[in-house]
């Protein structure tokens, strides 16, 4: 079982959320879960591009009350 890393990037404008994700990803190990919260509407397409490039697994992406929640399983490290 990997670790669960929670990243709060709410209120951060572009490129904040992806910057935070990259920082968390650098520290993560294979099997870890990264849970990230963001409010920047540009985060969704950016995240999709990032997932496609890195080959990690997007377990969940949802939006509630303007907050985007994404759950990523680290599989490419």
């Amino acid at each position: 079982m990997g670790e669960r890393i929670v990243v709060d990037a709410k209120g951060m404008a572009c490129p904040g959320p992806i910057t935070k994700l990259v920082k968390a990803y650098r520290k993560a190990k294979s099997g870890d879960i990264i849970e990230i919260y963001a409010t920047d509407p540009g985060f969704k397409p950016d995240l999709e591009a990032w997932i496609k490039r890195t080959g990690n697994e997007l377990v969940e992406i949802s939006e509630e009350g303007g907050v985007i929640k994404a759950v990523i399983k680290v599989t490419a490290k």
């Binding site: 572009c14 490129p15 992806i18 910057t19 990259v22 540009g42 950016d46 591009a49 990032w50």
Partner: peptide, 10 residues
């Protein structure tokens, strides 16, 4: 570059 596009801001 570590960004999604050629610059952090699209």
């Amino acid at each position: 570059l570590p960004f999604i596009h050629e610059y952090p801001s699209e």
